[in-house]
Write a protein that binds this DNA or RNA. Structure first.
Lengths: 128, 128
DNA sequence: CGGACTGTATTAAACTACTAATACACTTGG
DNA sequence: CCAAGTGTATTAGTAGTTTAATACAGTCCG
C-alpha cells in the first residue's frame, strides 16, 4: 500500500529480513555500496547510510578497502528473526483492534489472504 | 515500533480508522484545525494539510467560517473499513512470507499476541 | 449587531532524506 | 607490483515536511 518510509530504513529492514529468513548467511560477502546502489537505482550515499547503521548494530563488518561481510552467529539470527516476526505481528494485531475487528473476522481474512498469496509467483531476491 | 512517516498522513489514517471503527460518525462535527493542533501538539498548518486532503477524498466537508463535518454514508464507511483491513492484513501476510514463516507458526504467534493485547487497557481516543 | 471562532492563505525559516560529484586511502587479484 | 574495486568522507543542492507568525473573510451565537 505505502512505500514505508525512508529508503535507507527499507534497506536495513530488507537485509535483516534476508538474514532472518536464511537467504543471507551469517558470514557472507555483501554487495559493495556502489553495486547495490546501481542495482536498486539509488544513491551510493543512501546505501552507505544503511550499511553504517547495520555496522553500528553489529550485523555487518567493514574494513576500509575490502568488501563488507555479515557478522552474525546463529543466536543473533534467531534474535533478529523473533524481533521482526513479533514486531510485524504486534503491528497487525494493533491495527485490527483499532478497527474493532473481531478475532474471528481478522483471522478468517488473514487466512483468505494467506492462501491468495500462496497462489502467486513470489520471487524477488536482491541478488540472482 | 516506528513513527510511521509524515504527521499529516498519520492524522489522515487515524481519522479514517476512527470512521471505519465507528468511533467517528458519518455526519459528525470535526474538531477545528486550531483545536486539534493544540491537542496533538503540532502546527495548525499540518492539520490543515490533512483536512484538505480528506476533503479532496470526499470524507469531510468544510465551509469557510463554519465548522467541518464528516460526510460519509454507510456504504463509504464499509469501503474504507475494508480498504484498511485488507491493506494491513496484506502487509502482515507479506512480511510473514518474506520471513519464510509457516502458516501454522504465523497464526499461532498472532493468536498469542492477540490474547496478550486483550489483557491490556486500550483506550486512546482522540477526544474524551 | 458584534465578538469569538471558523476556514483559508501567505511567507519565511528550519530540518531531514536524498541526490550528485568528487576525492582519498586501503585491499585484493591478476 | 599495480590497476581495479573497495570503504569512507566532504560539500553542495533539491525536495518534502513541519513550524512560525500573521492576515483576512465568513459563520455562529448571545
Amino acid at each position: 500500500m505505502e512505500d514505508r518510509g525512508p529508503v535507507y530504513l527499507q534497506i536495513i529492514h530488507y537485509i535483516k529480513q534476508g538474514i532472518a529468513a536464511g537467504i543471507i548467511g551469517g558470514n557472507e560477502e555483501m554487495p559493495s555500496r556502489r553495486a547495490l546502489s546501481a542495482l536498486l537505482g539509488v544513491n551510493p550515499n543512501t546505501i552507505q547510510k544503511a550499511y553504517h547503521i547495520l555496522e553500528e548494530e553489529g550485523i555487518i563488518v567493514s574494513r576500509s578497502g575490502a568488501k563488507s561481510y555479515t557478522c552474525v552467529d546463529s543466536r543473533t539470527v534467531e534474535r533478529i528473526r523473533r524481533e521482526l516476526l513479533s514486531g510485524e505481528t504486534h503491528f497487525w494485531v494493533k491495527a485490527m483492534k483499532q478497527l474493532k475487528v473481531s478475532r474471528e473476522e481478522a483471522f478468517a481474512l488473514a487466512a483468505v489472504i494467506w492462501e491468495e498469496a500462496s497462489r502467486e509467483i513470489s520471487d524477488c531476491e536482491f541478488r540472482h
